[in-house]
Write a protein that binds this DNA or RNA. Sequence first.
DNA 1: AACATTTATTTAGCACACTAATTAAAATTT
DNA 2: AAATTTTAATTAGTGTGCTAAATAAATGTT
Lengths: 141, 141
Amino acid sequence: MKVSVDCDIRESLDKVSSKMRRDYSESLREINLYVGQDNLLARLWEGDGITQMQLADHLKCEPPTVTNMVKSLEQNGFIIRKRDGKDGRVMRIYLTDKGKELEKPVDFKWKQQQEKLLNGISPEERLVLRDLMKRMESNLF
Amino acid sequence: MKVSVDCDIRESLDKVSSKMRRDYSESLREINLYVGQDNLLARLWEGDGITQMQLADHLKCEPPTVTNMVKSLEQNGFIIRKRDGKDGRVMRIYLTDKGKELEKPVDFKWKQQQEKLLNGISPEERLVLRDLMKRMESNLF
DNA sequence: AACATTTATTTAGCACACTAATTAAAATTT
DNA sequence: AAATTTTAATTAGTGTGCTAAATAAATGTT
């Protein structure tokens, strides 16, 4: 099969993204986190007590995904869920001390992962890349 | 949380890749294929009768993934599996007529997906992008 | 020839996302 | 006030990959 430039990019994107995800997943396992949970925690480090709907919105994922992440994080003692006093439908998510302690190690792993991915790519090139990514993103959404 | 340029790129890559995959998956469902199976078939269109190990190598995936894809493709009548006459361990994969007929529609969907992703990005920019992708790829592998 | 190792494939089970359908509470309409 | 609609969360089940362990055939060693 002839591989055009365009095709190359699509496949390359897929390959880079899935490899990155797998590497990062392995790295996060060292601190008992799964991929996706780091982003959820990052939102809580900005301020906790928000609802699952707000988390789904922020993470651009679906409610069942939040349900599962939150369940896992609670079982591991990183967060607790409390039902809202005024609205009996909503659950509010709070960090435990154990959850708060994860901020530094996650930040480190994030930076480590970024540097691995972008190694040898200059700041100017990174800007170009970010621009292209944003344009592809708007093509899809 | 402060979002650095680097972090932006990592997240954007993830987002673009997963959205692309979902869109493409939906498109492939119209011709009774799942994501990944198109690449397996593409290899067979170049020449069939190869083994599952060769497919795993080519697709850069693990043997169990090939087992599952091949099982599904066989159930849908796109391929048949035949045990090798000389080596009783290996299965050789052959296209059926139904499988051969998929080449054109898959090619069409591929091009459609590429054009959607790269819409508004000039040929020069595509070259830059491809170069950057390749460099990120070599950073990871 | 018997035993051990390697190789190809399969099975079992997990991670992480999704959609569709369900439950339960709140808000709106009549 | 009762009935309907909306909203938040959950459950059930699927897709697409993975790893670890099992099976079964071939090859290598003694």
